[in-house]
Amino acid sequence: MNNKTIIEIKNLHKNYQVGEETVKALRGVDLTISKGEFVAIMGTSGSGKSTLLNILGCLDLPSSGDYFLDGGNVKSLNRNQLATIRNQKLGFVFQSYNLLPRTSALENVELPLLYNPLVSNTERREKAEQALIAVGLKDRMKHLSNQMSGGQQQRVAIARSMVNDPVVIFADEATGNLDTRTSFEIMALFQQLNNNGMTVCFVTHEPDIAEFTKRNVVFRDGLIIKDERISNRQNAITALAQLKDETYAFGN
Protein backbone atom coordinates (compact mmCIF):
# COMPACT_ATOMS: atom_id res chain seq x y z
CA MET A 1 0.00 0.00 0.00
CA ASN A 2 1.14 3.53 -0.78
CA ASN A 3 2.05 5.20 2.47
CA LYS A 4 2.02 8.79 1.29
CA THR A 5 1.20 11.15 4.14
CA ILE A 6 -2.03 13.04 3.53
CA ILE A 7 -2.66 14.70 6.86
CA GLU A 8 0.02 15.81 9.27
CA ILE A 9 -0.70 17.98 12.30
CA LYS A 10 1.90 19.13 14.75
CA ASN A 11 1.31 20.50 18.23
CA LEU A 12 -2.14 21.75 17.31
CA HIS A 13 -3.95 24.06 19.72
CA LYS A 14 -7.41 25.52 19.48
CA ASN A 15 -8.81 28.00 21.98
CA TYR A 16 -12.30 29.41 22.09
CA GLN A 17 -13.26 32.56 23.87
CA VAL A 18 -16.51 32.02 25.73
CA GLY A 19 -17.31 35.20 27.62
CA GLU A 20 -14.20 35.96 29.66
CA GLU A 21 -13.15 32.35 29.84
CA THR A 22 -10.82 30.72 27.36
CA VAL A 23 -11.85 27.17 26.50
CA LYS A 24 -8.92 25.03 25.40
CA ALA A 25 -10.58 22.60 22.99
CA LEU A 26 -7.34 21.17 21.63
CA ARG A 27 -4.16 21.17 23.71
CA GLY A 28 -1.29 20.13 21.50
CA VAL A 29 -2.37 17.35 19.18
CA ASP A 30 0.00 15.48 16.86
CA LEU A 31 -1.51 13.19 14.26
CA THR A 32 -0.44 11.75 10.92
CA ILE A 33 -2.81 10.04 8.51
CA SER A 34 -1.49 8.30 5.39
CA LYS A 35 -3.19 7.47 2.16
CA GLY A 36 -5.54 4.49 2.31
CA GLU A 37 -6.17 4.70 6.04
CA PHE A 38 -9.60 4.33 7.64
CA VAL A 39 -9.43 6.23 10.90
CA ALA A 40 -12.12 6.48 13.55
CA ILE A 41 -11.81 9.54 15.77
CA MET A 42 -13.56 8.79 19.00
CA GLY A 43 -14.31 10.47 22.25
CA THR A 44 -17.09 11.77 24.43
CA SER A 45 -18.76 15.07 23.65
CA GLY A 46 -16.48 17.96 24.59
CA SER A 47 -13.38 15.83 24.05
CA GLY A 48 -12.28 17.96 21.10
CA LYS A 49 -12.99 15.48 18.31
CA SER A 50 -15.44 17.77 16.51
CA THR A 51 -13.07 20.71 16.83
CA LEU A 52 -10.33 18.61 15.30
CA LEU A 53 -12.61 17.52 12.48
CA ASN A 54 -13.52 21.17 11.74
CA ILE A 55 -9.84 22.04 11.50
CA LEU A 56 -8.98 18.94 9.47
CA GLY A 57 -11.90 19.78 7.19
CA CYS A 58 -10.55 23.31 6.66
CA LEU A 59 -13.76 24.74 8.10
CA ASP A 60 -11.83 26.30 10.94
CA LEU A 61 -8.24 27.36 11.58
CA PRO A 62 -6.09 26.30 14.55
CA SER A 63 -5.00 28.82 17.19
CA SER A 64 -1.45 27.51 16.93
CA GLY A 65 0.41 24.58 15.45
CA ASP A 66 0.79 23.37 11.88
CA TYR A 67 -1.54 21.46 9.61
CA PHE A 68 -0.17 20.03 6.39
CA LEU A 69 -2.84 18.74 4.03
CA ASP A 70 -1.61 16.84 0.97
CA GLY A 71 1.78 18.56 1.37
CA GLY A 72 0.57 22.16 1.79
CA ASN A 73 0.34 24.15 5.02
CA VAL A 74 -3.24 25.23 5.59
CA LYS A 75 -2.47 27.65 8.41
CA SER A 76 -1.84 30.72 6.28
CA LEU A 77 -4.79 30.40 3.91
CA ASN A 78 -7.69 32.87 3.75
CA ARG A 79 -11.42 32.13 3.55
CA ASN A 80 -11.54 31.80 -0.23
CA GLN A 81 -8.42 29.65 -0.44
CA LEU A 82 -9.85 27.34 2.24
CA ALA A 83 -13.07 27.11 0.21
CA THR A 84 -11.08 26.05 -2.85
CA ILE A 85 -9.21 23.40 -0.80
CA ARG A 86 -12.51 22.04 0.52
CA ASN A 87 -13.93 22.01 -2.96
CA GLN A 88 -11.07 20.20 -4.63
CA LYS A 89 -9.38 18.07 -1.97
CA LEU A 90 -11.99 17.19 0.66
CA GLY A 91 -15.28 15.37 0.93
CA PHE A 92 -17.83 15.72 3.73
CA VAL A 93 -20.53 13.40 5.04
CA PHE A 94 -22.75 14.75 7.81
CA GLN A 95 -24.94 13.15 10.43
CA SER A 96 -28.08 14.77 9.00
CA TYR A 97 -27.10 14.21 5.34
CA ASN A 98 -27.57 17.93 4.45
CA LEU A 99 -29.04 17.30 1.02
CA LEU A 100 -30.84 20.10 -0.79
CA PRO A 101 -34.57 19.56 -0.29
CA ARG A 102 -36.79 18.76 -3.25
CA THR A 103 -33.74 18.31 -5.43
CA SER A 104 -32.83 15.15 -7.35
CA ALA A 105 -30.04 12.84 -6.19
CA LEU A 106 -28.07 13.65 -9.33
CA GLU A 107 -28.27 17.42 -8.78
CA ASN A 108 -27.27 16.98 -5.15
CA VAL A 109 -24.20 15.01 -6.16
CA GLU A 110 -23.32 17.53 -8.87
CA LEU A 111 -23.28 20.37 -6.35
CA PRO A 112 -19.56 20.39 -5.39
CA LEU A 113 -18.55 20.37 -9.06
CA LEU A 114 -20.76 23.40 -9.73
CA TYR A 115 -18.38 25.38 -7.56
CA ASN A 116 -15.39 24.20 -9.56
CA PRO A 117 -15.06 26.33 -12.70
CA LEU A 118 -12.63 23.81 -14.23
CA VAL A 119 -15.30 21.11 -14.56
CA SER A 120 -17.47 21.25 -17.68
CA ASN A 121 -21.20 20.49 -17.68
CA THR A 122 -20.86 17.10 -19.36
CA GLU A 123 -17.95 16.08 -17.15
CA ARG A 124 -19.97 17.10 -14.11
CA ARG A 125 -22.94 14.98 -15.15
CA GLU A 126 -20.72 11.95 -15.89
CA LYS A 127 -18.85 12.11 -12.60
CA ALA A 128 -22.08 12.48 -10.62
CA GLU A 129 -23.59 9.47 -12.37
CA GLN A 130 -20.49 7.38 -11.69
CA ALA A 131 -20.49 8.36 -8.02
CA LEU A 132 -24.16 7.39 -7.66
CA ILE A 133 -23.50 4.07 -9.37
CA ALA A 134 -20.61 3.49 -6.95
CA VAL A 135 -22.91 3.93 -3.93
CA GLY A 136 -25.52 1.63 -5.47
CA LEU A 137 -28.14 4.23 -6.41
CA LYS A 138 -28.05 3.73 -10.17
CA ASP A 139 -31.85 3.43 -10.33
CA ARG A 140 -32.59 6.42 -8.13
CA MET A 141 -30.67 9.22 -9.76
CA LYS A 142 -33.76 11.25 -10.59
CA HIS A 143 -35.43 10.69 -7.25
CA LEU A 144 -35.91 13.77 -5.12
CA SER A 145 -34.05 13.84 -1.82
CA ASN A 146 -37.24 13.98 0.25
CA GLN A 147 -38.58 10.83 -1.45
CA MET A 148 -35.68 8.74 -0.12
CA SER A 149 -35.06 6.81 3.08
CA GLY A 150 -32.36 7.91 5.51
CA GLY A 151 -29.93 5.26 4.26
CA GLN A 152 -30.48 6.27 0.67
CA GLN A 153 -30.04 9.93 1.54
CA GLN A 154 -26.76 9.14 3.27
CA ARG A 155 -25.63 7.22 0.19
CA VAL A 156 -26.37 10.29 -1.91
CA ALA A 157 -24.33 12.33 0.57
CA ILE A 158 -21.44 9.86 0.27
CA ALA A 159 -21.65 10.03 -3.51
CA ARG A 160 -21.53 13.83 -3.18
CA SER A 161 -18.46 13.62 -0.94
CA MET A 162 -16.49 11.52 -3.45
CA VAL A 163 -17.60 13.16 -6.69
CA ASN A 164 -14.65 15.57 -6.71
CA ASP A 165 -12.05 12.78 -6.20
CA PRO A 166 -10.99 14.08 -2.76
CA VAL A 167 -7.77 13.07 -1.02
CA VAL A 168 -9.77 12.31 2.11
CA ILE A 169 -13.44 11.99 3.10
CA PHE A 170 -14.48 13.32 6.51
CA ALA A 171 -17.56 11.77 8.05
CA ASP A 172 -19.11 13.36 11.12
CA GLU A 173 -21.29 10.84 12.97
CA ALA A 174 -22.41 9.65 9.55
CA THR A 175 -24.40 6.78 11.04
CA GLY A 176 -25.78 8.76 13.97
CA ASN A 177 -29.29 9.10 12.52
CA LEU A 178 -29.54 5.55 11.17
CA ASP A 179 -30.71 2.27 12.63
CA THR A 180 -28.20 -0.54 13.16
CA ARG A 181 -28.84 -2.33 9.90
CA THR A 182 -28.59 0.82 7.80
CA SER A 183 -25.52 1.88 9.80
CA PHE A 184 -23.83 -1.38 8.91
CA GLU A 185 -24.80 -0.94 5.27
CA ILE A 186 -23.25 2.53 5.28
CA MET A 187 -20.13 1.17 6.98
CA ALA A 188 -19.94 -1.55 4.35
CA LEU A 189 -19.99 1.17 1.73
CA PHE A 190 -17.20 3.07 3.49
CA GLN A 191 -15.14 -0.13 3.76
CA GLN A 192 -15.64 -0.74 0.06
CA LEU A 193 -14.53 2.80 -0.76
CA ASN A 194 -11.54 2.37 1.53
CA ASN A 195 -10.62 -0.94 -0.11
CA ASN A 196 -10.56 0.94 -3.40
CA GLY A 197 -7.95 3.29 -1.96
CA MET A 198 -10.01 6.13 -0.49
CA THR A 199 -8.77 7.64 2.76
CA VAL A 200 -11.60 8.00 5.27
CA CYS A 201 -11.63 9.88 8.53
CA PHE A 202 -14.67 8.96 10.59
CA VAL A 203 -15.83 10.72 13.73
CA THR A 204 -18.05 8.61 15.98
CA HIS A 205 -18.76 7.90 19.60
CA GLU A 206 -20.09 4.38 18.97
CA PRO A 207 -17.40 1.75 19.64
CA ASP A 208 -19.12 -0.93 17.50
CA ILE A 209 -19.06 1.42 14.50
CA ALA A 210 -15.38 2.18 15.17
CA GLU A 211 -14.65 -1.55 14.95
CA PHE A 212 -15.18 -1.41 11.21
CA THR A 213 -12.27 1.01 10.77
CA LYS A 214 -8.55 0.22 10.66
CA ARG A 215 -7.34 2.65 13.31
CA ASN A 216 -8.94 4.21 16.37
CA VAL A 217 -7.86 7.57 17.75
CA VAL A 218 -9.47 8.38 21.11
CA PHE A 219 -9.70 11.91 22.46
CA ARG A 220 -10.18 13.18 25.96
CA ASP A 221 -10.03 16.79 27.10
CA GLY A 222 -8.36 18.00 23.94
CA LEU A 223 -5.64 15.39 23.85
CA ILE A 224 -5.18 12.03 22.17
CA ILE A 225 -5.21 9.39 24.85
CA LYS A 226 -5.17 6.32 22.63
CA ASP A 227 -4.09 5.70 19.04
CA GLU A 228 -4.17 2.06 17.99
CA ARG A 229 -4.41 -0.09 14.89
CA ILE A 230 -7.36 -2.47 14.87
CA SER A 231 -5.99 -5.95 14.64
CA ASN A 232 -9.26 -7.85 14.22
CA ARG A 233 -11.17 -5.48 11.95
CA GLN A 234 -14.85 -6.31 11.53
CA ASN A 235 -16.21 -6.77 8.06
CA ALA A 236 -19.46 -4.85 7.76
CA ILE A 237 -20.92 -7.26 5.21
CA THR A 238 -20.32 -10.20 7.53
CA ALA A 239 -21.76 -8.21 10.41
CA LEU A 240 -24.79 -7.45 8.31
CA ALA A 241 -25.27 -11.15 7.55
CA GLN A 242 -25.02 -11.96 11.25
CA LEU A 243 -27.56 -9.26 11.97
CA LYS A 244 -29.96 -10.95 9.58
CA ASP A 245 -29.42 -14.30 11.34
CA GLU A 246 -30.13 -12.70 14.70
CA THR A 247 -33.32 -11.16 13.43
CA TYR A 248 -34.23 -14.55 12.05
CA ALA A 249 -33.50 -16.14 15.44
CA PHE A 250 -35.69 -13.56 17.16
CA GLY A 251 -38.41 -14.34 14.67
CA ASN A 252 -38.38 -17.92 15.84
Binding site: R79, N80, T84, R86, F94, L100, Y115
Partner: peptide, 12 residues
Amino acid sequence: EIGLRMAIGGKG
Protein backbone atom coordinates in the same frame (compact mmCIF):
# COMPACT_ATOMS: atom_id res chain seq x y z
CA GLU B 1 -27.95 24.85 2.97
CA ILE B 2 -25.63 27.86 3.02
CA GLY B 3 -23.35 26.03 5.46
CA LEU B 4 -23.29 22.98 3.22
CA ARG B 5 -22.56 25.05 0.12
CA MET B 6 -19.68 26.66 1.93
CA ALA B 7 -18.40 23.32 3.26
CA ILE B 8 -18.24 21.82 -0.22
CA GLY B 9 -16.39 24.80 -1.61
CA GLY B 10 -18.84 27.69 -2.13
CA LYS B 11 -17.09 30.97 -1.54
CA GLY B 12 -18.74 33.96 0.11
